[in-house]
Design a protein around this nucleic acid. Structure first.
Lengths: 348, 348
DNA sequence: CTTGGCACTTGAGCTTCCCGAGTGCTAACC
DNA sequence: GGTTAGCACTCGGGAAGCTCAAGTGCCAAG
């Protein structure tokens, strides 16, 4: 009972099924792969594989198809690493060169990943983590409107237009900005709400512990701007996802016969996808794969997710979603490569 | 020959076909609509409509289906305006309230439009037009990296991280920023490249006409930052498109039997879609519709595009793309409403 | 353990058949 | 004239039947 040959058979089945999209039989297998044995032998192997729950036959007279467990074994033990092609590396490199601001990088990377894998790509924005306030700017847009810009140490830029209650001068704005920045400069984003809450009481109330509620806002302008900053921090810290390649689903319609609708709906729920990504692979930078029913989320039980961490401490996640019947080696290689490049870009 | 009844028949055919997705016959028509005449009369009308090229029968024994011309007539003369539902208005309003920066508004609006119409939504970024430089900021991120932020009068914020050749002090950066801003503040974006090109020569060369090429850059730092600003301006002025709802195509697979792939490919070519949008409807704020073969772009000959101008002078465009068999009244109402709301938001 | 041989199963594809939806036309009717 | 009932006619699509080839499992021999 040549154990390794059986694995070869499984690999061949997975590869052929992914390539040709139809159940693969013993004869086709010996024709297409140099297995060195007859189809009868393959049949015996297949019987064993089926008994082990790694493949199934849709009908009696059809070939075999990998089960979730079969894919799992394939991914874990058999698949070769498929290095990216020259052209693909070049595409990634080009992306790196054209990188502009964070949003831009995110969007371009997502599109690239979708293109490389022909799947739907998801990238979680870098989490707030231990990001700090790098810079704060208040720009007068008009007499009664100001733009508040917050820049975080992880390169995130958040902006918001703030309507002002009454006209203010440029000097007043500059002054307000100085005071705000003085209070939060270089502090972790997580502390900002607290810090500014204190500021919104009387300026010199360094002693009070939790008394500021009683004081009316000393300065409506400052109060308003501080509120905007707090809101911006919330926004910067909020988990967001950028997605690309959803149109690839239209191509994949044949793979999900009918089960494509739940997938669509899942993708539209950003919260769901966020949790999904977060739950995947707490292990560092490795690539994690969830196959079919392994997904903890029912509507994705016919889909697979490949994800990897990226960025500092691999704390953020990116990945792709596609049909169970996908090209795992290529997709995994792409996810890993993109994660690495993205980490490098962000590290600057 | 009751002319108006024939139009009613056409309308009924379009509506039923859109709703039930199958050719509609004379009997079904009299059953579902109170036309007050017999099916034989309807048949006569249908014969005329077919002769006029407004409907066709896929086969002899099937009902009729609208042609592009039929849809066209329907859109131009028959369709009722379908006001948005309460819930839909509320959704738009919510969007308005949550509006943050421009990118955010764009993305949210696109998603909203896609959701309202169940089609693919496209929104062209506000064009550069007569936008001017509102603000320029240079922030030291590290000893040898600076962040350049450009804010335009139409609310666009562009940022870029600039690696510096050698370490600089905060003061040097501030100085450079002052000189740059001094040169371009409040000037139209279109002039910025020229203005900064001049600056990159010797500072006091106010006399020279086109001699600056001979001088080596007086200040490498200034030169580098100026280059970044010029690039940012190019980026801000560049036509871009934000897209949403491409996943809706997966649902629409039944409408495009096989012709969906060209549509997908077209959507992936932003340039194509940009030109498409630009070419549509030079007439002011009205909603323009291109039906099937009316599209000047071959791959979209089985698709329809609904677009509208928005923003100042309705100079920018937004719209949706979907199968010819789409709910025109609803989609048109949604496009128009979203265009109006977006204009209002941008006008602040 | 492998392999050739063989009986057996069964889905896919093809043909045939039939039915009913839908049409166009004609003749009567208002 | 416009409308309607009636009717013969057309065909696409679904059901039924048939065949075929792919594929299997098993057995006996190598």
């Amino acid at each position: 009972m040549s154990d390794s040959r059986r694995l070869n058979v499984l690999r061949a089945i997975v590869e052929d099924y992914v390539q040709f999209r139809e159940p693969v039989g013993s004869r086709a297998l010996v024709d297409r792969h140099r297995l060195g044995v007859s189809s009868a032998t393959i049949r015996n192997d297949m019987a064993v594989l089926e008994e082990e729950g790694l493949i199934v036959a849709p009908h009696t007279s059809a070939g075999r198809v990998p089960t979730d467990a079969g894919y799992r074994l394939f991914v874990d033990r058999i698949s070769d690493v498929k290095p990216l092609s020259q052209a693909e590396r070049r595409a990634i490199q080009t992306l790196l060169d054209e990188a502009n601001d964070l949003d831009d990088v995110m969007e371009k990377t997502a599109r690239l990943l979708a293109q490389l894998t022909h799947q739907v790509a998801l990238i979680q924005y870098p989490t707030i983590g231990d990001a700090r306030v790098r810079h704060l700017d208040v720009v007068a847009l008009a007499e009664d409107r100001a733009l508040v810009v917050l820049i975080t140490s992880n390169g995130h830029v958040e902006q918001r237009v703030v309507p002002l209650a009454s006209p203010v001068t440029v000097e007043e704005l500059a002054d307000a900005r100085t005071r705000l920045l003085g209070a939060i400069d270089a502090r972790p984003l997580t502390e900002v709400p607290t810090l500014l809450g204190r500021l919104r009481g009387p300026i010199d109330a360094e002693t009070g512990t939790d008394a500021p509620v009683e004081h009316p806002p000393a300065d409506p302008l400052l109060d308003r701007l501080a509120a905007a900053v707090v809101s911006l921090v919330g926004f910067a810290g909020q988990d967001r996802i950028v997605m690309a390649g959803t149109a690839n689903l239209a191509r994949a319609t044949r793979d999900f016969p009918l089960t494509i609708l739940p997938v669509l709906e899942a993708l539209e729920e950003q919260v769901v996808m966020l949790r999904l990504l977060s739950e995947m692979g707490q292990d560092e930078a490795g690539v994690t794969v969830r196959i079919g029913h392994e997904n903890p989320y029912e509507p994705l039980s016919e889909a697979s997710v490949i994800a990897s961490g990226y960025g500092p401490a691999a704390a953020s996640r990116l990945g792709v979603v596609g049909p169970t019947r996908m090209d795992y080696p290529t997709s995994m290689a792409a996810v890993r490569a993109v994660a690495r490049y993205l980490s490098r870009i962000l590290a600057g």
